[in-house]
């Protein structure tokens, strides 16, 4: 694994979070949420800082990070695309939409494009089943998406 250098300000910010949570190992998940907001993802280097800050083993932190799907160890694209694969979206054709994104971007689900612009992932139900199938790009939600709409959505982000 290539070592990466973390931004010193962000490291300080994360350390402050550990202080705010009283170095309490029971707050690990809350701290990891904060860390992911600060760094965008949770590389090994960040996990080391969290482990030290909360007085728990690195293995414990790693175990928790890999257990929960919300935490990621790879950086997401500038525009993270998530296709809802909840049941309601699935029966209304979400799989075809997912395939179309992967086809147009040349990615596999869970990957980021080489230029770092887009990442494609599937997620389980955003709870907007009335709009199925649902796609989110960053914070924006697209409802009733058909495979034919995918090209247009990507174009909005300069693909």
């Amino acid at each position: 694994m290539a070592d990466i250098t973390l931004d010193a300000d962000k490291v300080e910010e994360l350390k402050a979070v550990c202080v705010k949570f009283n170095h309490d190992g029971g707050e690990l998940i809350n701290v990891l949420h904060a860390a992911q907001i600060i760094f965008g993802y949770l590389p090994a280097e960040v996990q080391v800082i969290v482990a030290e800050g909360l007085n728990v083993s690195i293995a414990h932190v790693y175990g928790v990070v890999t257990f929960y799907s919300f935490f990621t160890m790879t950086p997401k694209g500038e525009h993270p695309i998530s296709i809802c694969m909840g049941t309601a979206c699935y029966v209304r054709g979400a799989e075809k939409v997912l395939d179309e994104f992967n086809k147009l971007l040349g990615t596999k689900t869970g990957e980021t494009t080489p230029d770092g612009k887009f990442s494609v992932s599937s997620l389980r139900c955003v709870g907007a089943c009335g709009l199925a199938p649902v796609v989110t790009v960053g914070e924006k939600v697209y409802g009733r998406v058909a495979a034919a709409d995918v090209k247009g959505i990507l174009a909005e982000y300069g693909a």
């Binding site: 190992g25 029971g26 707050e27 690990l28 998940i29 809350n30 990891l32 949420h33 728990v56 414990h60 175990g63 928790v64 257990f67 929960y68 799907s69 919300f70 935490f71 389980r124």
Partner: peptide, 25 residues
């Protein structure tokens, strides 16, 4: 408030409690 992190099994109450304690659910 405690936050989940995307694990279906945490709807099970013992898993949920472990998750709130900062462990794998």
């Amino acid at each position: 408030i405690r936050y989940g992190a995307g694990a279906f099994v945490c709807g099970e109450e013992t898993s949920l409690i472990h998750s709130m304690e900062g462990h794998r659910g």
